[in-house]
Amino acid sequence: MSAPIVSARGLVKDFPAGPDRTLRAVDNVSFDIAAGETLGLVGESGSGKSTTGRMLVGLIPATSGEVSLFGQTVTGRGGDARLATVRNRLQFVFQDPNGSLNPRMRVRDAIAEPLDIKGDVARADRAARVAELLDMVGLPAASADRYPHEFSGGQRQRIGIARALALRPEFIVCDEPVSALDVSMQAQIVNLLLDLQERFGLGYLFIAHDLAVVRSMSRNVAVMYAGSIVEIASRQALYAAPQHPYTQALLDVVPRPDPDRVRKPALAGEVPSMLNRPAGCAFAMRCPRAEARCRVETPALRDIAAGHRAACHLV
């Protein structure tokens, strides 16, 4: 892998949860993303995947750990100033196509917002850029005059993508960009993101709960559970030979359009509360293979093959 444009090292996020209590939403998360590549980040609710994505772009400050973007360390002392120098090179695409656009703002102004914030864009250039961006995401130029409510969910997601592209970023965090869309719209947006990546050499952190969608988007995939990465590998390795029992269970339960398939029985139990984190492996209480040491000793994320890491005592 070439030098990463994005790297996270030991990221931790604690949220206050009442007096003298904190909730550890993200625990010791590390990964790298190279230029033009996608890391898929999969997990269920409470896995900390979305919090991780937000920490990466400075929407949520990290409690500890380090984020480097384009060679700049943007966490810690003086991090904000360094983040400002790379701000224009990163962007974010949100999940909710309703909430991510200001209902009182015309599409033109929504898309041009990053340009307006950066400043120094002439009016004519701004209009030309908006038209260009609308074309890039496959919306008619006439959309510029309209308000978000006049568009369908899929079209609104295209508007959100156009906004993210306004300053020609090199890296975009996509936080569940297709989860709220109808099936027939999901595929369109996935293809659009792939086309844009090919055309502009974009790097993505693609956050999702759907392993099938992640497979179609990502070069590398990380699986999160209860705040930590439990397995990270190339797409080929992860889908062909998943190592962590959680990844295996997750792959087993994805509903497939095949009436003859017999699914394995569902995994019992639920994600543990982050307030009463169990000792040892967080997955142990649901794990069909758990042994005594799993409930005592927290497994470290370690190499099990080249480029394939898993946090499990049993692999």
Binding site: G154, Q186, Q188, V213, S216, R235, L251, P257
Partner: peptide, 19 residues
């Protein structure tokens, strides 16, 4: 249009247009 889980694709099949 359902993304496959068991094999890789370069692009998904789509239904054009909107609901």
């Amino acid at each position: 249009a359902i993304p496959p889980l068991n094999h890789d694709v370069t692009r998904l099949s789509t239904i054009p247009g909107s609901i």
